[in-house]
Design a protein around this nucleic acid. Structure first.
Lengths: 219, 219
DNA sequence: CAGCCTAAAGGCAGTCACTGCCACAAAGAT
DNA sequence: ATCTTTGTGGCAGTGACTGCCTTTAGGCTG
């Protein structure tokens, strides 16, 4: 596993960018589902087998981000002294500021495709979930309560994804980071409390017994 | 689309239960990945095509819960007057109390399989996510802030899933509902604040510029 | 610079989840 | 009993993904 430099590494990264660009073109043009991996491979002049080696799955052609891999370390570093929300916020802010115009445009392109396509959005959720699991490992090893770490990180990741979806559904007009910032604020305040619509009952039990019929288990 | 009664409906539900039981047996015995849909179908004496019609996907053979479908209404009803956390908590409590011994055992069986198998866990995440989207629709139509609804519901669902995973990873010894209750408490308190490890900095900016290299975008 | 070695790319064949289509059977209405 | 409707079974196909093996090319050594 090589890393940053080396001709091989550069060649691979270049290839991945070319392939992703090609894929985004085709997906935008004809729809994600209507394009097969083989077509992308042909258009990008690579063997299908190679696409699979690079990206693993079809969805990753859209989801993949060059900088994702290197983002874990900074987060991990900050988690030692900061709570999860602040850690994520700082790293995200730094990332967005470091992005070029071209990268930002590419990101929006990808996000639009993601949220226009349930299959890709699903894959993104999974991807984020894997990241969450990673973070849980970091936190709970240096802290007391395991369950609390699980819940906090999962809620955090879920909340951010929710913000991104909302951003996408509402036209993607403002910068994504604004939505994410607002999401983080909501999470800090606590899920129960809404800004408007304030109420005082935080724990009265009853309501219908007639609804006893409506069971649910976990999901 | 029929509902509760009618002989056809009963027959279908019975068949689904039989098929799910068969599937769980096989999956536990030989591992989820090593069992094909066709084998499940044969063992349960149904056509593969029928399994797909009933369950849609292989993962749903494990995830499916008879009562899931009827659970949305009670939640929706409570969301009018309660905040999301209280609504979910009440419905979940009611559901668990209404469960028979046999149903509870089956639930644990399913959960063990789910969390022993990344593919199924992924599908569960997606399933939960779809439910979250539903809830967002209910809330944001009767409330002011769209984004807040997205974030809250997503965080809520994410947090519950986190609790369940933790419960599973830590041996599944206590009742699931206990873990979920604790998760809900964490969410109410706000993601930033941990119970122990209290700190006072909720918004100081800096830290490394050296970490500017570590970018990340969104996912 | 030649030649070796290791790692990556291409090609092939196969598996399996999932789908559309059509013929058939059984539930429910007349 | 007959008609209609709705669900079921079988068939053939698609396409994502994998293991395996061959070939190519980077990267290092003398």
């Amino acid at each position: 596993m090589y890393e940053g430099s080396g001709l091989r590494a550069r060649k691979k990264r270049d290839a991945m960018h070319r392939i992703q660009d090609t894929a985004l073109d085709l997906f935008e043009e004809r729809g994600y589902d209507a394009v097969t991996i083989e077509e992308v491979a042909n258009a990008a002049a690579f063997a299908p087998r190679t696409l699979y080696r690079y990206f693993g799955t079809k969805e990753m052609l859209v989801i993949w981000d060059e900088h994702d891999e290197s983002a874990m370390e900074p987060i991990r570093r900050r988690l030692v002294s900061l709570d999860p929300i602040d850690a994520i916020r700082q790293v995200l802010h730094a990332s967005f500021e470091a992005m070029t115009e071209r990268e930002l445009a590419q990101l929006e392109r990808r996000l639009k495709l993601i949220y226009a396509n349930p299959a890709i959005e699903a894959a993104l959720t999974l991807h984020a979930d894997a990241l969450a699991r990673h973070l849980v490992g970091v936190i709970s090893s240096s802290q007391d309560d395991d369950l609390e770490a699980h819940v906090q990180v999962n809620a955090l990741v879920g909340g951010i994804l929710g913000a991104m979806r909302h951003w996408s559904l509402s036209g993607a007009s403002t910068p994504v980071m604004v939505s994410i910032d607002r999401a983080l604020a909501v999470l800090e305040r606590g899920v129960g409390r809404s800004s408007a619509h304030l109420r005082a009952n935080t724990g009265n039990p009853p309501a219908s017994t007639s609804a006893g019929k409506g069971k649910d288990h976990v999901r």
